[in-house]
Amino acid sequence: MDLENQRRVKELTEKYGAENIVVVLGGAEAEAAGLAAETVTAGDPTFAGPLAGVQLGLAVYHIFELKEQVDAEIYEEQISMMEMVLDVPAINAEVGNMRDSHSKYGK
């Protein structure tokens, strides 16, 4: 996860409280999405950004996991094409694993 996004997640969490934050990912690869999920729960695994060593434990989901929560028309317009292109089960499994292992909220 890039350093700027880490900074924004950290600031928003400090402002609103970890229990009130949900991070929605749009990563195109299971590994990259998993790393982002790990970053906002267990801390930056690369130890490069503001979340290095910071265990926020946030609720984190990939947008594919939230299909049922999204207006069907908007999902169709914004996401359905990528759903055809990407490895959805692998992405969902990776983000789900990170959430189960490190999230304090939203399980």
Binding site: A28, E29, A32, V85
Partner: peptide, 16 residues
């Protein structure tokens, strides 16, 4: 972790 960029683009065109 950035994936196969051309392949993803070709799949996007096909999916469209």
């Amino acid at each position: 972790g950035a994936g196969d960029v051309p392949l993803a683009n070709y799949k996007m065109i096909a999916a469209l």
